[in-house]
Simulated assay, not measured.
Amino acid sequence: MSWIDYRKELDFVPDSPAFVERGRLRDLSETLAKLGFRVAEVLFDNDAPNGERRLLADLTSALGAATAHAGSWPVFNDRLWDVLTSEDKAPIAVVIIGLDSMVKKNLHGFVKIVHNLLSLTEGVGLQSGEANRQVAYFFVGSWG
């Protein structure tokens, strides 16, 4: 399966990590869908108890993976492997909305989440030629 290069159609999206202004959410989601991505939108609630655990559980569900025991990085990594090696090779665009609320409250947690998502996804892809499903992350918020 060839990867979709979305950068031509979405010239307002910077290189990874793809931080996108909140006002462009509709353009982003609609264009990604037109390009052939399955768009999985996940809302991050920084005020919710155990926000990181909730986000990981929501991401696991949005990716279409088994949700049993979801909510930790090791389980997310296992489920990500399942998604990337599944027979379904349709590309997935994961659109995370609201992570910007974490920047001022918990910068370390914010960096950890963005770093882990990007590096775990790339790492799984490097471990095996079978893990060749495209998963792209877009972080939507007020970044300016």
Results as ranks from 00 to 15, higher is better:
residue 12 F to M: 08
residue 6 Y to L: 07
residue 90 A to F: 01
residue 12 F to V: 08
residue 88 D to I: 00
residue 114 V to A: 07
residue 91 P to A: 06
residue 78 D to Q: 15
residue 72 S to A: 11
residue 29 S to Y: 00
residue 68 A to E: 15
residue 8 K to W: 06
residue 77 N to M: 09
residue 63 L to E: 03
residue 10 L to E: 05
residue 93 A to R: 05
residue 36 G to N: 08
residue 26 R to W: 06
residue 76 F to S: 04
residue 144 G to M: 04
residue 120 L to P: 00
residue 99 L to A: 07
residue 92 I to P: 05
residue 107 L to W: 12
residue 78 D to S: 14
residue 132 N to Q: 05
residue 50 N to F: 14
residue 41 E to Y: 00
residue 5 D to M: 09
residue 7 R to K: 13
residue 58 D to T: 00
residue 13 V to P: 12
residue 21 E to M: 12
residue 77 N to I: 02
residue 50 N to Y: 11
residue 127 Q to N: 08
residue 128 S to V: 01
residue 121 T to F: 01
residue 118 L to F: 01
residue 6 Y to P: 00
residue 34 K to T: 11
residue 22 R to V: 04
residue 36 G to M: 10
residue 67 T to Q: 11
residue 129 G to I: 00
residue 55 L to S: 01
residue 85 T to H: 02
residue 18 A to N: 13
residue 44 F to V: 05
residue 31 T to R: 13
residue 18 A to M: 06
residue 1 M to F: 07
residue 15 D to T: 10
residue 80 L to C: 07
residue 115 H to L: 12
residue 3 W to N: 12
residue 139 F to S: 08
residue 68 A to S: 14
residue 28 L to F: 10
residue 50 N to G: 13
residue 47 D to Y: 12
residue 20 V to W: 07
residue 89 K to C: 04
residue 136 A to S: 14
residue 48 A to H: 11
residue 82 D to C: 05
residue 117 L to H: 06
residue 111 V to A: 14
residue 45 D to P: 00
residue 74 P to A: 06
residue 138 F to C: 06
residue 143 W to L: 02
